[in-house]
Design a protein around this nucleic acid. Sequence first.
DNA 1: TCGATCCTGTAG
DNA 2: CTACAGGATCGA
Length: 267
Amino acid sequence: MPELPEVEYVVRRLRESAPSATIRRARILHPRMSRPQSVALVQRRLRDARITAYERRAKNILIHLDNGSAVRVHLGMTGHLFWSASPVSKGVRAVLELDRGVIVLEDPRMFGRITVHPTHALPDLLAEYGPEPLDASFTWQALKDSASRSRLPVKPFLLDQRKVAGLGNIWAAEALFLARLDPRRRVDSLSDADWRALRNAIRSVLKRAIDNAFAATSRPDEFPEADLLSTRVYGRESEPCRRCPTSSIQRFEQAGRSTYFCPNCQC
DNA sequence: TCGATCCTGTAG
DNA sequence: CTACAGGATCGA
């Protein structure tokens, strides 16, 4: 579930609920969660470390520690990370026991992971990611330039984390709808006006998703499901298009993922 | 650049 | 039972 908006939501919630906490003990409850690192290594590095900052980079959650290390949490498809005042029982894969409360990693499918790295190694670790779409440096020219040697359809192109860090299947579809672009259009066919519209649409849908997440839930431990985040096309196969209600939203496969779009007003 | 794959849960 | 799932990586 987690794309940029959910990860951003998680980080902001952690900042407000557990600022500068101290980790008394970390428990990785399934060895898969810290692959390829050993459970023992991760637990040892986190013991008695104080948290100095929470950061998001692409879909990664970075928890900076005062001992020269940083925790990297990736939520995969089904991960949730949240602070709780009291222990949690269901679906827990890792727990950071704090001086006050716990930080819990739930992840039924275990595509997510939690690893620990020297702080100085983070830049190399994250070097492959492209620009943050909410940064001012994310211009339509930069986006266009990053596509210069690609002939992919625009939807799969947008899912490449080297092009736009943090964008995923839902918000790529939503951005294309807002920009009125057919997801099948090849990137080498887009005009400057298309790139400008796409860049603006990406920023718009992401900002709105973050805002809506806070508006849609009062519980810091859960991120609202996509259907509560007022998607226009994602998950709405066969429903009438919100912009031209005589057509209906279609779903098809692109690079192994579902793409939703309006065949009439996205062209 | 695609298909398969890592896993489990849920909806139909 | 089958289909599908919002991510990322690997090999062909």
